[in-house]
Design a protein around this nucleic acid. Sequence first.
DNA 1: TAAAAATACTCCATAGGTATTTTAT
DNA 2: ATAAAATACCTATGGAGTATTTTTA
Lengths: 307, 307
Amino acid sequence: MDLRQLRYFLAVAEAGHITRAAEQLGMQQPPLSQQIKALETELGCVLFQRHPKGVRLTDAGTMFQAEAQRLLADFAAMQERMAALAEGKRGLLAVGFTSSAAAHAFTPETLRACRSRYPGIQLVVSENNAADITEAVAASRLHCGFLRVPVSRPHGVVLETLLQEPAVVALPRDHALARTRGGVALADLQGQALILVRRPGAPGLYANLLALCAQQQVQVSVAAEVDRMMTNLNLVAAGVGISVVPASMRGAHPHAIVYRPLAPEVVLDAPLTLAWRQADSTGPTATFVALVRKLAAAQGRRQAACA
Amino acid sequence: MDLRQLRYFLAVAEAGHITRAAEQLGMQQPPLSQQIKALETELGCVLFQRHPKGVRLTDAGTMFQAEAQRLLADFAAMQERMAALAEGKRGLLAVGFTSSAAAHAFTPETLRACRSRYPGIQLVVSENNAADITEAVAASRLHCGFLRVPVSRPHGVVLETLLQEPAVVALPRDHALARTRGGVALADLQGQALILVRRPGAPGLYANLLALCAQQQVQVSVAAEVDRMMTNLNLVAAGVGISVVPASMRGAHPHAIVYRPLAPEVVLDAPLTLAWRQADSTGPTATFVALVRKLAAAQGRRQAACA
DNA sequence: TAAAAATACTCCATAGGTATTTTAT
DNA sequence: ATAAAATACCTATGGAGTATTTTTA
């Protein structure tokens, strides 16, 4: 038995004539008769009473009509669901983000936009460190990841910078460097106690900072190592030491922390980065990536307009 | 898309290897690869990630696996239902009977036996006169009919005598013929007031009786014409006249009515007859006819043993 | 007897087989 | 380097077309 035979049967049942049904199906009468006969043989029961001016459903035929209609409708519904999935309008989408990526207003805005624009896409969000997120994307446990400065790029994973953003120095209010004008130079960090995010899983921002210091032979000490960037700021506010964070995190502890830009010659960026598997060029992931790109471009234009 | 392709897909998804799945399907790897590719092309999404030691389901593939499993299970369930229908173990069965056929214990016994033996067969019973029942069977509004002496046999309808039974004369207790010994002769009916069942729809028993009387030039009058044979007996009990009924109806009004056999030379039988469409040689109707025949044979043997 | 369906046959599209190449780790 | 999938090409089953016969009210 075959879906084609079900369609043939339904056409005949509806038309009441094999000849007329064959016309509607765009075929000839004999092959249609043969298929109906084959169907009857396979089912082991006669589906139509043959009359000189057409055919009429038997009891078995009436029952089979209901069954065939249901099955073909289910099949069509399945095809629609798969088409929606292929178009990227439906399906599960697991998105991960680091705490620092979540701190940027862009991330929750994007998730909200996806929810409202594509209600068929079921978003599952989770938080983790940058290393685990890129690894999970590579292993298909996540479809997309938002992070800051990546530490590695696993094979098959695309890392795309969404928003460029400078790093700023976070200082306790009464710190000496808080009075700096024109940006903090790398030499100013000499002898400072830094608060960093612990490796493994640390964002590249801290690796880059330490590399710069080593390169310029600036000696720094590590006052504390924490798991999330937000904890950094809590410790800065408590006066444990100083730290470096993306500019968009300047909203935290406004009374206890002073944020100062780095000097122009210190290139230390903290971009917002999107990770996804290169193979996901269709489906919900592709839809989401396209949406994120569009929103990021709009955000970029807005920032440019402000500056 | 095709059910075959769904089966192929599920085999590959389960095996995790196209080659291994091809073995299990009893085919070669290349055609299986082709079918999988064709499926992916039609769906518009990649179902498997190809690895050097096999394939793994993508997100779309996982979704499609669930869909395909459901569809194939539904399809198999449909096939089972249709097979049960073809075997006659399932389906609707409309059975009609006349009031006189229902009066015979055999009819309700048979229906009860069918219900317990074939719970999948949905019995729908109705009562009507003999003419309407045979007509309804011919027109497929009924699958089977129980009646007494048929009046006509529409084309395509089989009438089978289940139980042979003599007619008896029903007399008011104080009627002169009630004292007859050795059976009522046709001549005894001369001048009697008979209660008959009204035509159209009357059982052939009364047509046969009147024909016999006309043939033997016995004059009878018609005291009343009713719709159901049971009403006959009510009027006999009331002393309106005399009547002729099947022997098995002797249980009615035992205090008011005396039943006397007809003389041996008067051949007036009131068999129990089953009607069904000749075309219904499979399905529930055939099952039911076979069951009825078996029960009738058993009943016949029991009667023979009693005599 | 006049429709519609069934039968007999012919053809071709495509599923499936065989041989080989490509791919990915 | 190796195992597995993809590609190329060939074969053959069976679905569909054409012509004709049979059926049934």
